[in-house]
């Protein structure tokens, strides 16, 4: 299967290892992966600030880069939900509609479309805290939330169970937001940091040695809070775990 890899701007610049792990994982799973070189950002940072005019150029560029592909895979639920649900700063041409309908978050692509469950090359003997981002939970419906009575298994957890040795910590508020929230993290700095500290503390009291998420933005924020507090807990993107980087 030929797929295009969407590496969100901050992953490209700050977390290249997450991009590499995603690329290698997709290749291990039999995909032919193309990386459009001129990609930058999906437009979300400006759009969540309300500035759709300022998001238009990035959104148009995104569509130019990816319109020629049948599957566009990004390791970030937050960016993917922006493409799918909020890419409306630009005219809704056929190309735009195509891109919005064919962009997938890594976990849902591996879980739903490739339907892979085993990652025999990976092993992780750790108690991990799984952080499902709010975009993954309440926008992309990748897991049941505590608000709704519906029972549904987390797609991320199902995939991680295919890695030998992994055990799961059970935090008290598993789906409470960690407080990143894009512009929220700086517009509402004090509340954002407090939420991040609370999130990390909840995982720590549950015994988690490593917080794993499909959203690097949440991890970046939580890691920043944890480091400032001098906590020793680790952080990893789910692609790094599934690719066996931490084995």
């Amino acid at each position: 299967m030929k797929v295009a890899l969407f590496v969100p701007c901050f992953i490209n610049v700050l977390y290249p290892k997450v991009g590499i792990a995603t690329l290698e994982l997709l290749e291990k799973l039999g995909c032919e992966v193309v990386v459009p070189p001129d990609q930058t950002c999906c437009g979300q940072p400006m759009a969540t600030a309300g500035c759709h005019d300022d998001a238009a150029a990035a959104e148009a560029l995104f569509v130019d880069n990816f319109a020629g592909f049948e599957a566009i895979i990004g390791p970030s639920a937050s960016c993917v939900q922006h493409i799918r649900k909020h890419l409306f700063a630009i005219a809704q041409t056929d190309a735009v509609k195509h891109v919005r309908a064919h962009t997938f978050e890594l976990v849902e692509f591996v879980h739903d479309i490739l339907a892979v469950r085993d990652f025999p090359w990976a092993r992780l003997d750790k108690l991990i805290g799984l952080h499902n981002s709010c975009s993954a939970l309440r926008s992309l419906d990748q897991a049941a939330t505590s608000e709704l009575p519906e029972q549904r298994v987390s797609k991320a957890r199902t995939l991680l169970e295919g890695v030998a040795g992994i055990r799961f910590a059970e935090p008290k508020r598993p789906d409470e937001c960690c407080g990143f929230g894009g512009v929220f993290s700086v517009f509402e700095e004090a509340v954002s940091v407090r939420m991040g500290q609370d999130k990390v503390a909840d995982h720590a009291q549950a015994g988690a040695e490593l917080i794993v998420s499909a959203d690097t933005s949440c991890l970046m924020h939580q890691q920043g809070c944890a480091q400032r507090q001098g906590r020793s807990i680790g952080f990893a993107h789910i692609a790094q775990v599934l690719n066996g980087d931490l084995s």
Partner: peptide, 21 residues
């Protein structure tokens, strides 16, 4: 503002795109 209560993210030597090239 980010750094008031948080450390900045790491700054790796090369970006993903540089690595890929």
């Amino acid at each position: 503002t980010w750094g008031r209560g948080r450390e900045l993210p790491p700054m790796p030597k090369e970006t993903f795109q540089e690595w890929y090239r």
